[in-house]
């Protein structure tokens, strides 16, 4: 059995993936609450204060998760995969893979770990993490990581986007992009597992994917 399996993700990649997933889910939930408090607290409660606290904790986690992922991309002994994210190389492959996904073509090339659309989407999400963190930092009133004065260091974000109400709107739009990404990402994992029959879906839990039997 083990023979037809390929070790696709080592523990570091898997943990980083799930830590980021959990932090995004928490960020979305607490973010919805902070934007529009849908429960009210009774006497002695600190509901909003806790929501904000967890929002900030998860925000730090998401940022650190990206830092770890970037570190792995360059320094992982298992698989430093930064070359897979070349924009030009991936853009060249888009017509092939897109043609397959919109049923114009019956098959596509074998791209290894990430197909071009996938690589570009992941790269875009890395930039989204940066963008959402910048807008978040611009809204934060206090010192980030305990020593960076948020108002002084990220006021430029607010000025660039036209004031704090617009920073909030961009922050909310970014959240929706994360939600949409997660929906599409989950669907694609299921779809590809079903069509390639290579256990793509479970590989993010177990680390192992089925080898091509061709």
């Amino acid at each position: 059995m083990q023979n037809d399996m390929k070790y696709e993700w080592n523990l570091a990649f898997r943990i980083d993936h799930w830590v980021r997933f959990l932090s995004i889910v928490m960020l979305v939930f607490t973010g919805f609450y902070i934007h529009w408090p849908f429960m009210s607290g009774g006497p002695g409660s600190f509901l909003m204060a806790w929501m904000r606290f967890f929002h900030f904790v998860c925000a730090y986690t998401l940022i650190l998760g990206l830092v770890v992922r970037i570190y792995l991309a360059f320094n992982s002994r298992f698989s430093s995969d930064w070359k897979d994210f070349s924009i030009t190389k991936n853009l060249a492959g888009v017509p092939d893979i897109l043609g397959y996904y919109i049923f114009v073509k019956g098959s596509h090339k074998d791209y290894g770990r990430y197909n071009p659309l996938q690589a570009l989407a992941y790269l875009a999400m890395a930039f989204m993490v940066i963008f959402v963190s910048l807008t978040g930092a611009a809204l934060y009133k206090g010192s980030l990581f305990g020593f960076i004065n948020a108002a002084g260091s990220f006021g430029w974000v607010s000025r660039m986007l036209g004031g704090e109400s617009y920073v909030r709107i961009w922050h909310i739009f970014s959240m929706w992009i994360f939600i949409i990404f997660i929906i599409v990402h989950a669907y694609m994992s299921v779809l590809i597992s079903a069509s390639n029959k290579d256990k793509t879906l479970t590989s993010i839990f177990t680390g192992y994917k089925l080898k091509k039997s061709a």
Binding site: H108, V184, L191, S195, N196, K197
Partner: peptide, 30 residues
């Protein structure tokens, strides 16, 4: 936007099933 995405996925899933990509013998990769 999220609803449109979900609807798009539903259509794509139906298409994938109809074209035999899901449950068929061959994967998409050549």
């Amino acid at each position: 936007a999220a609803v449109v995405t979900a609807a798009g996925i539903a259509v794509h899933a139906i298409g994938s099933a109809a074209s035999g990509r899901i449950g068929g013998k061959d994967g998409g990769e050549k």
